[in-house]
């Protein structure tokens, strides 16, 4: 600190036997908005009316979570009906974070109807929806954007006719190809009947979503029960699973614990962070917002 009329330690003097503590400042810029494309694949067979209504009611919760996470997102919905060829439903069919009526659009799109005859081929229709070459959903999959596919069904996948005898592996291969193309993680979550016994609500029952759950677990996604009463909680979990946001900012050297002053976008932040002195880093409890300028001034541990 510089004091008026008193300039301390302005001259480096190798003759001085005891150097004062060395204070350094490091600056970071939080990553820009992470990009995520979320594809809902909703079972469109006759038993799904209640579940679709519950899902639609939780649409705003889901988008609120994405908004709170400051993700640059695109959300689309397709059905499990092979006749749909994976075309995204609704208007607009790609819902973005900038849309004023995103919740309403998503709620409408999630109600894909219940007129489809079996088979409910979720993996197959998801693969079609993600296939840029088909041109149906142009712009939905973005280079550099992560992918989160959410299957919602009271049955299990029945894509054998299109994906062969091992639809799980076939769909995992689709995700791997997507990861290679986008350079980002492709993840699956499943809102399905409990494995292995299925589940039952007052009005409906659900078969175990064995295949969907297996792929979700294989990709690090979450598995929720479609018989759960609280779809808002599911939406919150799904939205959270879509985020991958930096909270840790590595420092060049170990700081003296308690010595740091932290500013985010020029505003002093007194709490909500801590210094990792072992693996030197500034660690926030909650990620700073996108593009935030982060400044940390700290005393070097070696200089004490």
């Amino acid at each position: 600190m510089l004091l008026p009329g008193c300039v301390d330690y302005a001259i480096r003097d190798s003759d001085v036997e005891s150097l004062p503590p060395v204070v350094v400042e490091e600056r970071f810029v939080q990553a820009p908005l992470p990009e995520i494309d979320v594809l809902f694949v909703v079972d469109s067979t006759g038993s799904m009316a209640d579940e679709q209504a519950s899902l639609a009611a939780a649409a705003s919760t889901f988008l609120d979570v994405l908004d709170d996470l400051q993700l640059t997102y695109q959300v689309g919905v397709t059905s499990t009906d092979p006749a749909d060829d994976g075309a995204l439903r609704g208007r607009p069919w790609i819902i973005t974070g900038g849309s004023d009526s995103g919740s309403e659009s998503l709620a409408t799109a999630l109600q894909v109807g219940t007129a489809s005859a079996p088979p409910a081929a979720g993996f197959h229709t998801a693969a079609l929806a993600l296939d840029d070459a088909l041109g149906l959903n142009r712009g939905f999959r973005r280079a550099g954007a992560g992918l989160h596919v959410v299957f919602v069904s009271d049955g299990d996948d029945q894509s054998d006719t299109w994906l062969g005898g091992d639809p799980e592996s076939a769909f995992l291969a689709v995700l791997e190809a997507d990861e290679e193309e986008s350079g980002r993680l492709a993840r699956v979550s499943a809102v399905v009947g409990d494995v292995p016994d299925g589940c039952r609500t007052n009005a409906n029952s659900a078969l175990p979503g064995t295949r969907y759950a297996a792929v979700a677990e294989a990709t690090g996604g979450i598995v929720e029960s479609i018989c759960a009463a609280d779809f808002a909680a599911i939406a919150t979990a799904l939205g959270g699973a879509a985020a991958d946001w930096p909270t840790r900012f590595p420092l060049q050297a170990a700081p003296v614990d308690g010595s740091a002053l932290v500013e985010v976008d020029g505003v002093r932040v007194e709490s909500g962070w801590w210094l990792d002195t072992v693996e030197p880093a500034l660690v926030f409890n909650l990620a700073p917002p996108a593009d935030a300028e982060i400044s940390v001034v700290y005393t070097l541990a070696e200089s004490e």
Binding site: L2, Y9, P20, P21, V23
Partner: peptide
């Protein structure tokens, strides 16, 4: 100043 309580070598 901007960093009270910390000696500073700018």
């Amino acid at each position: 100043g901007t960093i009270p309580g910390v000696a500073l070598a700018l």
